[in-house]
Simulated assay, not measured.
Amino acid sequence: MRSEPAEQPEINLVDPELYSHGDPFVQWRWLRDNEPMYWHPPTELPGFWALTRYEDVRTAYRDSETFSSAQGILLRPTDHGADPGGGRTLALTDAPRHRQLRALVDSWFAVRSVRELEAEMNDVARTVVDAALERGDCDFVADIAARVPLYVICKMMGVPESDWEHLHTLTSRAFGAGDPAARRFAHLEILGYFEELQAEKAADPTDDLVSVLATGSIDGEPLDAEDIILNCNNLLVGGTENTRIAAAGGMLALLDHPEQWQRLSEDPALLQPAVEEILRWTSTATHIMRTARRPVEIHGRQVEVGDRVTFWLPSANRDERVFEDADRFDITRKPNRHLALGFGEHFCLGSMLAKVELRLLYAELLNRSIRVELDGEPKLLDSIVVNGPDRMPVKLTAA
């Protein structure tokens, strides 16, 4: 039985090294038990409230009248100014704008649409695994986990296949643990790419997501070109980043718990609950932020208009009040009502897509009896935004 910290640990949720070299669960566990509504003092980031319990996060997610997404959904330094996507992208809008934007692309991510794409997605997974097998040793993050969701969303967005590798390079730089200036430049290059692509699709639309945005309108008004570009970037990031880290983090969890991988190989029907447990276990979005639109009291603490309130999803998904034996990785866990993909109005648009991608990738490895072994120490991301493997050297061998 785990012993709880006797004293309050030092609380600093915004130290990137906590997630790459430390144990944030020590802090989250103490906060859940002692200060579930915690005021985190300013650092280089502004001060904010931290919610760490499952029910509190779920309730706040559902209350979009109180907690706004339009001011940004991630902590950012004050001197960076407002998030440029605020009030303009799917992730950073409130009703009614959020619903209107979502309605333009919703059908592409519906269960039926994803199922129709499944054969093509399976081909993508097979091609990616074949290439990794041919190399023998590779980085599971960059060479496998990143490519499957990227190639799929590129296909859906109408990105020419000849450009997929270019976007893989850019997204690897943008999301990786490199120089901040290089990451920013990569983000700008991605925006520049979509500036050109949306112009092409506006002039000659085809059956894809970028064409939908480039020719779409809300209340009879076409979308502004900058709004289209920002939403394209939002779809690319949303369709790749968290799935990439979940796929790699899930593989790492299965390597750390080989008996679970063995159970999967013996009973493929467990893949569906396994994917849900991987999403709960990895909880790749470390925090999500909202801004209070009206005063509210939570656990006796007064939140004022304009206060930042953060949801710490890995903490909520390990809350012992909801999940039995929460720190145990169990691919048969039921029920498993995790919050890894959000909740309420902002429930992840691509949730079904992400689950199918994970299932198909692991199925490809299992069905072909491909052995995956660590070939070095995984490196975790230095980030307070997403958590999980940044690099994960492995060897792949076919049976």
Score class of each variant (00 low, 15 high):
188 L>I: 12
350 G>Q: 01
393 P>I: 06
395 K>H: 11
163 D>W: 10
223 L>N: 06
209 L>V: 12
243 T>D: 02
181 A>S: 12
17 E>G: 11
99 R>W: 12
261 W>V: 03
139 D>Y: 02
41 P>F: 12
349 L>S: 00
350 G>D: 02
12 N>M: 11
318 R>F: 06
5 P>T: 09
333 R>W: 02
99 R>H: 14
40 H>A: 08
301 R>D: 09
11 I>V: 15
249 G>S: 04
57 V>L: 13
347 F>V: 13
150 L>K: 04
330 D>T: 12
309 V>W: 00
339 L>P: 00
269 A>P: 09
156 M>T: 09
283 S>G: 05
86 G>V: 02
74 L>I: 15
64 S>P: 03
226 E>W: 13
8 Q>D: 09
244 R>K: 10
358 L>G: 01
398 A>L: 13
55 E>H: 12
71 Q>C: 12
361 L>Y: 01
280 R>A: 03
359 R>G: 02
339 L>T: 01
247 A>R: 01
265 S>R: 15
344 G>S: 05
399 A>D: 15
344 G>T: 07
123 D>Q: 13
38 Y>N: 08
352 M>G: 10
222 P>G: 03
106 D>K: 14
21 H>Y: 11
183 R>C: 08
204 D>Q: 13
288 I>R: 05
172 S>C: 10
373 E>D: 14
27 Q>M: 14
315 S>L: 03
124 V>Q: 00
116 E>P: 05
131 A>D: 15
